[in-house]
Design a protein around this nucleic acid. Sequence first.
RNA 1: GGUGGCAUGGCCAAGCGGUAAGGCAGAGGUCUGCAAAACCUCCAUCCCCAGUUCAAAUCUGGGUGCCACCUCCA
Length: 475
Amino acid sequence: MTLSLYNTLNRRSEPFAPLEAGKVKMYCCGITVYDYCHLGHARTCLSWDVVRRYLQWSGYAVNYIQNFTDIDDKILNRARQENSSMAEVADKYIDAYHEDMAALHIQPADEYPRATHCLDGIQKLITDLEQKGFAYASQGDVYYSVRKFEGYGKLSGRKLEDMQAGASGRVETDPEADIKQDPCDFALWKGAKEGEPSWRSPWGEGRPGWHIECSAMVRDRLGETIDIHVGGSDLIFPHHENEIAQSEAATGQPLAQYWMHNGMVKVEGEKMSKSLGNFITIRDLLKTYDPMAVRLFILQAHYTKPLDFTDEALQAATKGWETLNEALLFGEELPTQDISADAGILQKFRDIVDKDLNFSGGLAIVFELAKELKKEKNILVHEGKLTQNPQILATVWLTLKELADVLGFVASEKAAVADDEFSLTAEEIEDILRQRKEARANKDYAEGDRLRDVLVEAGITIMDRPSGKTEWYRE
RNA sequence: GGUGGCAUGGCCAAGCGGUAAGGCAGAGGUCUGCAAAACCUCCAUCCCCAGUUCAAAUCUGGGUGCCACCUCCA
């Protein structure tokens, strides 16, 4: 079995073979930094994080580049609102981005190029396109002439004619309509407007268009052709289509061998959008849910399919994560010297996941391992013994640990909660439990149950062990 | 109008020609004075219709219903 990947370019799954043996050049279209990251970004970043980990686990050295778009109208608008500058707004949300990604345990990219730091490469690319006849200047702007590029539409499967026919009204109301030769042409460079940041260029003061930065960055950091180009499926058209047009017209080489796109996120059945008011940021989400539960939730569905964030689903994922977490923690008590993971099971996992990154299928194996460990742990806690040889369990654990690492799961101890956050202190609880024990010894169950209810109301759960000991914990 | 995708148990979701993974929830049982926790067991023939095949959730044709994209988008 070899890895196969669904390639948007050809609309089918294809065996993966990198350009250079053992190495993968990967580029992910990042974010425009004008606000906090939301669920959609979480899904995109998390999906490709795991793909990257899986490629690494499969023996590839992955060079992973992700950009920040830090020149954009939305950033300028935000700067006006906040009485700030474009650079300040960008810096603020880039910092926030790194915080959010760290919280989700996403590996940092090898590099995060920013549009404002790539002006030379951008201008060079535009110049190349101009010289080759794919670009034209018009009233201070520079546009890409889509009809000059033969393969235009090959990624998104569109024809220029089809797009014009009944397209949305935006084409007609396009303010640039009369300065473009064709309504489908897009800006490579925009002439400066009063009061906006701008850069010097052969076409006068101005700033780059949206699509050109990615073409320039890929060329600068990774070369003319890369292995895998990823991003949200909403970027297929026009963003990635335009990237292809720009890069391939300039270099004459394919921009990427494999184009991969993750599905969109919905919230309670509706598309997430600011106008619907169901726009949820990562930081808000993580106030309620464990980042690992979010990771599990996202990995439970295939990366290409739409994913609906509902409280019910997140709660289910939280429970599932608790099982995984317990199993991962339990293993740390097992003897692992001279023991290694079960190669057969690892291979089984690989066989499943190799088919277009079927992580949800692979999770079935992870859970089989986790449940076995969790069960043993509980038997140990409740009965004080193991039913299996610790060495066998250590093998199970090492296997689980390896797969959990591939998927980016990190176990965490339940956070200790300070006494003063609760109405009852540990001492008071122990005291009530002593009274309850006495009442039960006297067969005064009504009083025993009353005391238990007192604790339950204070958020304390108690467990009477067969040994006669009573354990408790706070909800 | 154009292009693409999806439809599997109460919910989420794998499977892509060989007789339905996994998670969550639920039911019964063991244990317990009762609980809690834990452990054991159980729980679907895959939107509809018609084909192809020894064999179809998986292929073909036709329906129905959702969804996304068509220059703001991860």
